[in-house]
Design a binder for these strands. Structure first.
Lengths: 220, 220
DNA sequence: ATTTAATAGTCGGCTTGCTGACATTTGAAA
DNA sequence: TTTCAAATGTCAGCAAGCCGACTATTAAAT
């Protein structure tokens, strides 16, 4: 069960981290850290989803990392590289974290070379994700980017049901827009279009991927 | 002289790498690796610049990483994460590299925990760079992105002269376009504009930043 | 239960920046 | 030096998608 999902930690790796850290909880909507904060902690996500984003000059959110899941580390880059946060981290849902202090984290890595390598692998995987994002932003149009992110979310945190894959992140159109670099209005109208052509269905803020094939037809 | 430039390796770190690897040379314009190749080597750049890019469906180049300099490692992510290249790496100039085989690299990391941590820091720094790129692509318009990349290139590989900072990467407009997600024609006309307002000067393919302040005025 | 704020839906006008097309210049190869 | 391909400069036309404005609908708070 190791080496299969290099973006996630193995159970024994999490155990090491749990022993060096202490649990914290954040409720939905709260901010875990913001730019300028001292990056003195690394977090292991135990439960819930966290959104990593920055703000544009006009105050719009731009999701620069993806949504982080249980089993993932977050706040890693700033702790390793520079002492200051550059992003916001916001709790999308009720969230439980293990917080590890920077110094303890460094010691942990020195004592567990395997873990240090795992962290490097993990960052490498994220690096490639980021490169993909850049590639998509540059080469696809807005409908293509929307379709693509819906498919990716379905794959990464969707729950299969009898009528399609349910995405339960409760994202608003504005948040989706921030993830693909588009305006809120455009996302709204595209979602309607996708619903009409029956490639997705929408109930409240739950999106179901009904016809992945038709959806991926947009990612020309 | 350590800890100052976390994206570069310290001399003793390079020495370790040199002992595990062997030198290779590539001439200007040649491809070092391409998608689908087995990612069985990590490279330390000794001399020259390397461009990391992908291709769009229509065959246009998209520079997903930045330009890599002497002192940087490249091909890292694929070796750590998956066994296959996902990008092209092309020699912008005559290039000298130290190639380290994957297995030797892994052994090296296990034997030198400090180096493993350094690699993680290095990837963390790149991660933040990639996040910045995403942020810029989403939130700035084309002139802003061009101005911003010129300023960044000046900072990272420009040589100060008495009349401005010289950027000597010999990039074509098409290549610049690929780095900022714009069309070749738009870049051409923007470069003319910048030249007219005397924030840059152009001689052949050499660009000099004359008035950084005026340039950064474009990055609203 | 009521109030209030946040989100979703819709539309016309307008701007940015892409496309294609062509002339001109540059530079590398023969 | 000549030749030829690649890169640059320029322009008109067009379309994607943004913006502002407004209404309708949900969800949260009291």
């Amino acid at each position: 069960m190791n080496g299969i999902k290099p973006t996630l930690l193995a159970e024994y790796e999490k155990e090491i981290i749990r022993q060096s850290g202490s649990p914290v909880m954040y409720k939905k909507g709260s901010i875990i850290f913001r730019p300028g904060d001292a990056a003195d902690k690394v977090y292991l996500i135990e439960q819930g989803w966290v959104k990593i984003f920055r703000l544009t000059m006009e105050g719009r959110q731009v999701t620069v990392g993806s949504i982080r899941h249980p089993g993932e580390l977050m706040g890693l880059a700033e702790v390793l590289y520079r002492g200051e946060r550059t992003c916001h981290a916001g709790a999308i849902s009720e969230v439980t974290l293990i917080a590890v202090r920077k110094d303890d984290f460094h010691e942990m890595l020195l004592g567990e070379p395997q873990l240090a390598i795992k962290i490097a692998k993990l960052l490498a995987a994220r690096m490639r994700e980021a490169e993909s994002s850049i590639h998509e932003l540059v080469s696809r149009n807005v409908p293509g980017r929307l379709a693509s992110i819906l498919l990716r979310m379905a794959q990464r945190c969707g729950e299969p049901t009898d009528n399609g894959i349910r995405i339960n992140l409760n994202l608003t159109h504005e948040e989706l827009a921030g993830m693909i670099g588009a305006s809120r209005q455009t996302v709204t109208s595209l979602i309607s279009q996708l619903r009409e052509e029956k490639s997705i269905s929408v109930k409240g803020r739950q999106i179901r991927i009904i016809d992945p094939k038709k959806l991926s037809g947009w990612t020309v």
